[in-house]
Design a protein around this nucleic acid. Structure first.
Lengths: 231, 231
DNA sequence: TTCTAGATATGATATATATCATAGTATTTA
DNA sequence: TAAATACTATGATATATATCATATCTAGAA
């Protein structure tokens, strides 16, 4: 069960400057009265594709995936979001229902601001609107750029890319626990589950990584970087 | 040479309601004083990746492509934009330089609004900001959705997709002149030029289409629709 | 506990796609 | 006008990837 958790007033929140840094005290109060923090356990669904949009969401702690449900019970993962990311995208302003589903890959804390309240602040404060556009457009641009980058690569390059992604952007370490299954990796970088497993095994045999279940250790990051670039 | 053309005042422009419908007379005047209409001939470059962002652009007439220059002299086409599309994307608010190049596939007329002026209007008018977000988020969402759709398909499905795209969304006709070369089709749907040509030939042999240079006639749209869906 | 569904793993094979080669045709450039 | 360059076209071949089959190993359900 998602669980409402106690939260401080926005004005003392350490995430304030993420977006709300230049609001007037009244505007910040409005946001504060209309926000809540919710804790999701690993595996729980944060929002579901097609449901009415009622909140603006950003991730305070944890890790989540944005994805769409495909026809044949196979998802398409759009992106992995980390703390400080805005996980409800801009379409919230143009659509009445969420375009993507979001679920927690690790225990996560989400700050949820009521959409009408947010709209009211934007309507009064154009500079705030520009801040939102900046942040969201960066998310969109990153998603688009990443998609092209991944699709240009061969399968070995894609696997290398995703390992480097987790190592560099999520865990800042050469050794980490994969937060998603081989199948989800496949859904993220558009290949079959078998080939994800196969290529990870190849990397292991080539002594580029070690594998222990979901635990990955990068033995040769330079070589991985090379595979990522060249194939 | 791009050519400045005479343009009416924004308040009488038939494109006003595209975005500027709810501006106050003063705001509309500000936009009007800071806008110009420019005519680009087929093949001319409208804006170049990496150049300083000075204008907000939308297409009034014609057809353009958004693309990035790749390493090996092979472009990646991001999307094809048609009249009423905003061809400078949201990144204009977050980046200082254009992220994509834009060039004219057909003679095109672009309305260009000075960025500082637009920013001033947004800053004063939050509802206008929401309008911009709506429109732009739709462009982003479409690009992302299209990318996933294309990449899920086999090559025959991709070619069918792109033929249907031109037929349905651009020319509203079963018969049309392809505005791009086989090579550009390849750059748009991520395959090799040879295979674009080969599969178009297959469609011709299968009597799904006729080909006369760039001229395509769809003989069997239903079957094409089927190829698009199934493979 | 036992049973079951899902995840990981690997091999054999079929299929899809890219690459290489070559040639004709159209279009631009000198 | 000729020469050069890009575009279209097609075949042969190599390579990359998906599919199918099977097995083991979990983690959760009964």
């Amino acid at each position: 069960m998602p669980e409402l958790i106690a939260s401080s007033h926005c004005k003392t929140c350490s995430y304030k400057n993420l977006l709300f840094g230049n609001l007037s005290p009244e505007e910040l109060n409005l946001v504060n009265r209309n926000k809540k923090e919710i804790m999701f356990k690993k595996g729980e669904i944060i929002s579901r594709e097609g449901k009415d949009i009622t909140s603006f969401l950003y991730l305070k702690e944890g890790l989540v995936k944005l994805y769409t449900q495909s026809q044949d019970n196979r998802d398409q993962i759009i992106s992995i979001a980390k703390p400080r990311d805005f996980i409800s995208l801009l379409s919230m302003f143009s659509l009445s229902t969420y375009k993507y589903s979001i679920s927690a890959l690790e225990d996560s804390v989400v700050c949820s601001v009521n959409m009408d309240a947010l709209r009211e602040v934007i309507s009064k404060n154009g500079d705030f609107a520009i801040e939102i556009m900046k942040k969201m457009s960066k998310m969109y641009d990153d998603i688009i750029e990443t998609r092209f980058e991944i699709n240009r690569k061969h399968l070995r390059g894609r696997i290398a890319y995703i390992l480097i992604f987790f190592s560099t952007h999520i865990y800042q370490s050469d050794e980490f626990e994969l937060p998603i299954s081989r199948r989800e990796i496949a859904e993220l970088i558009q290949m079959t589950t078998e080939n994800v497993i196969r290529i990870l095994s190849e990397f292991r045999k080539d002594k580029i990584i070690t594998i222990d279940g979901k635990r990955i250790k990068m033995l040769n990051p330079d070589r991985l970087e090379n595979v990522c670039k060249l194939g």
